[in-house]
């Protein structure tokens, strides 16, 4: 046998061996994925298309219009919260990159620390600060001013979302902004572009992937939250998450809750797909 032939045989052998090994390694994972990711989604769909006795029906979807307002409100609040977070976090991440390496490391730690704290407790603490007899109002009264109604308003809910998901926007923005080569900006300046045009034509396009992932990381948990709206919105705000939470807890309305979960999931997956498409196109333009 020639050398080349022998190499060929050996490569083929190692390839089949590799294929077998890779399947074997994946086997537990594939089973796990199908049992606990794929099957549950089918069960949600099955519940959505049946009534409590298990017979096929489209009634659940007919009731979708009842929850039109909750769905609409959720998307509006989440969109506002995402926009506010982006507007606040972008300059924040930008200013961070302008500091010394040691300061950046410390600030990074300070941004990540609240992420490790439980959302429930942070939200409760915000509630303590802004409630009717809370800290801010107590201070106002002590200074001889009148109390301000802050809790149980849509504004409080949006503030809660911005507050809780702010670090999730800062992290991806910081990671793209800190990688932008200063030489690129110098080159743009040398070629005669001023501050605003440098931002629009160099910094912004280069930070697009960070913006996209930040938006998804803030929007998805915001639109589906139920704790923040319960604690800070009271009865004035009833989001889709609140509705699902109250529906699935009772066996009799579980099918309706499954229908709303299915709708929420499909809408969010479509949103994410559109966003990813958008970022791909941006990348194409960049190249």
């Amino acid at each position: 046998m020639t050398d080349a032939k022998m190499r060929g045989v050996r490569e083929r052998k190692s390839r089949t061996r590799k294929k077998g090994v890779s399947l074997l390694l994946n086997f537990p994972y594939l089973i796990w994925l199908s049992l606990f990711v794929i099957v549950p989604m089918f069960i949600v769909a099955a519940y959505a298309f049946t009534d409590a006795s298990g017979a096929f029906t489209l009634d659940n979807f007919r009731k979708l219009s009842v929850y039109r307002e909750n769905i609409f409100d959720s998307f509006v609040y989440a969109l506002i919260a995402t926009a506010v977070t982006l507007i606040l976090a972008y300059p924040f991440a930008y200013f961070m990159t302008k500091r010394s390496a040691a300061a950046q490391r410390v600030m990074m730690m300070l941004v990540m620390l609240p992420m490790w704290m439980n959302l429930l407790i942070l939200t409760y603490s915000i509630m303590n600060i802004i409630e009717t007899n809370g800290i801010v109002n107590n201070l106002l009264v002590a200074m001889g001013m009148e109390k301000v109604q802050m809790i149980n308003t849509p504004g409080a809910v949006v503030f809660g979302m911005v507050y809780n998901y702010f670090p999730y926007m800062v992290l991806p923005l910081y990671s793209v902004l800190s990688k932008i080569d200063p030489a690129l900006l110098e080159a743009a300046a040398d070629l005669g572009s001023g501050g605003p045009s440098r931002f629009r034509r160099v910094i912004l396009p280069l930070s697009m992937p960070g913006i996209i992932s930040g938006i998804t990381m803030v929007f998805v948990p915001s639109v589906s939250t139920f704790y923040i709206s319960q604690k800070l919105g009271g009865t004035s705000v009833n989001m889709i998450g609140d509705v699902i939470e109250s529906l699935v807890n009772r066996v009799s309305t579980r099918n309706l809750g499954a229908m709303l979960s299915l709708v929420l999931m499909v809408v969010i997956l479509i949103c994410i797909m559109i966003m990813n498409r958008f970022s791909d196109e941006e990348g194409g333009i960049m190249l």
Binding site: L33, P40, M41, E245, V248, G257
Partner: peptide, 26 residues
């Protein structure tokens, strides 16, 4: 395989929770 494995990451927590609860109840 990669896109299926990303599903729990992209899905809202409430949907993942409800879907697993329905599976376990079933």
């Amino acid at each position: 395989v990669l896109s299926v494995s990303n599903v729990p990451m992209m899905n809202p927590d409430i949907v993942t929770g409800v879907s697993l609860m329905l599976l376990f109840a079933f």
